[in-house]
Amino acid sequence: MFSLKNKAEKTTVVIGGSAGSFPIVNRILEGIRPQYRMPVILCLHRLRDKREGFKEALEIKSKLPVNEPNDKSLALPGHAYVAPANYHLLMEDATHFALATTELVQYSRPSIDVLFESAADVCGQHLIAVLLSGANRDGATGMRHIKRKGGLLIVQDPQECSMRTMPEAALQATEVDYVLKTEDIIRILNEFH
């Protein structure tokens, strides 16, 4: 149904979201095919001092098992990973995570820019990035970096977002491949299955 604009084989999905993105992420994890072919890596802005409960809330409807990665642990196909509280989540190489407690980026730790930039470096054109609703500009620089490395960019349609600052910042920062509503984001992700 989509004419795919970017033909390179895809190995990794990263998703960033902030205010208003939680129900969207839940819907994506519910709609995605079980045993999805790639790891789905989530960076969502969250409270820095609440370690428990977030992963569990995502797990309820998810078709994929949800984990908060430990440092240097593996990114496995068919699993969803969510950046832990008060850490930046990075891709150390195409299959391993790394964590960092470095400064906030865009007032955030975890920061979407940090995940996206590191994933772009190690996955290049094999990366799919999805940026959802949010009230700040985190993710825009990361999206631009992914574009330069040949990855595929999807932004949630600002008209559907409860907070449109974040997707609009990305649309201004770089050329995005798809601007889609939630159900179409799920459909295109499943086409890569």
């Binding site: 891709m91 150390e92 790394a98 470095t102 470096d121």
Partner: peptide, 9 residues
């Protein structure tokens, strides 16, 4: 060092 973070620094 873990190059992902070192590169950012």
């Amino acid at each position: 060092y873990a190059m992902s973070s070192f590169k950012r620094r």
